[in-house]
């Protein structure tokens, strides 16, 4: 039995009177690819925001830990600490740093794994120089991983949409995570780009041993690559299991085809 790297128990999130998440349970085991699906407005992005510290969940437990380390409850800690622990994310509406170059965007990701401070910056001492060069090499290597090395010095805002999404993945990888959270990574991509993306995600899991939790609407991609799938609807978990189990679940079919099915 592999221990979970992320274990979410009975998490609830209220916005005023609206309950966006209602007692959701979800776990990701080491080396797994888990998908979180559901209709628009189901609360998937809210779930991501809750476990990455952007929102503080109303109740419930979020427990994470690198496999081997002792797990830790992280409810309501700051987003940068969540990233430091080892969960990195991308955003549904791309949030790159537009007027920085692609390489610099990735370099920002290494911030929490590097140390040089004001003194290092000003004195430019040996330690700071070595660290800086390491940051550059590592970032460039990650750009190669997502096939963006030729755009290293291009401003992020000048990249086409699909490449921006891949750049966000490289930036998240730079934080050296054990769990990668991808919010609709294939949105706005053409079928060819989607296949490339799928290979990229599988590669990240296989080569780096990073677990992946992804939100995605492209069913073909989700069904073919995930080990397990969780289905949200109106903030409630309505089904979970292997792709076969979920795709045969009447509750899921109903949620996707609408309430009208009741009468049939």
């Amino acid at each position: 039995m592999v221990s979970p790297v992320l274990n979410v128990q009975d998490i609830c999130m209220d916005f005023g009177g609206i309950r966006a998440l209602d007692e959701v349970n979800l776990d990701v085991k080491a080396g797994e690819i888990v998908a979180l699906i559901g209709p628009n407005g189901a609360g998937k992005t809210t779930f991501f925001n809750c476990i990455t510290g952007i929102y503080k969940p109303t109740s419930g437990d979020v427990v994470v830990g690198r496999s081997g380390d002792s797990p830790r409850r992280i409810n309501g800690i700051k987003p940068n600490l969540v990233t430091e622990i080892g969960m990195a994310r991308t955003f549904q509406n791309i949030r790159l740093f537009p007027s920085m170059t692609a390489l610099e965007n990735v370099m920002i990701g290494t911030h929490c794994r590097t140390k040089s401070g004001i003194w290092g910056a000003i004195s430019h001492n040996r330690k700071a120089r070595v660290e800086e060069q390491e940051i550059i090499e590592r970032s460039y290597h990650l750009l190669e991983l997502v096939h963006l090395e030729e755009y290293a010095n291009e401003l992020a805002c000048n990249l086409p949409y699909g490449k921006q999404r891949r750049l966000e993945i490289a930036r998240a990888m730079a934080t050296d995570p054990f769990l990668l959270l991808l919010d609709e990574p294939a949105a706005g991509m053409n079928p060819h780009e989607t296949i490339e993306l799928k290979e990229l995600v599988l590669g990240i899991r296989d080569v780096y041993g990073i677990s992946i939790l992804l939100i995605e609407h492209d069913m073909k991609m989700v069904m073919s690559m995930s080990d397990r799938i969780f289905v949200l609807d109106y903030g409630r978990l309505i089904s979970h299991g292997t792709p076969q189990e979920v795709s045969g679940d009447p509750a899921v079919i109903k949620a996707y085809l609408g309430e009208g099915d009741d009468d049939v």
């Binding site: 952007i54 610099e104 920002i108 929490c112």
Partner: peptide, 23 residues
Amino acid sequence: SRIGRAWLALREDEIACQAMGID
């Protein structure tokens, strides 16, 4: 430097900046 880049990132997008591990 590393700090200068963090400032730029903070200017560009505060949420993304925090999500990338910058205090």
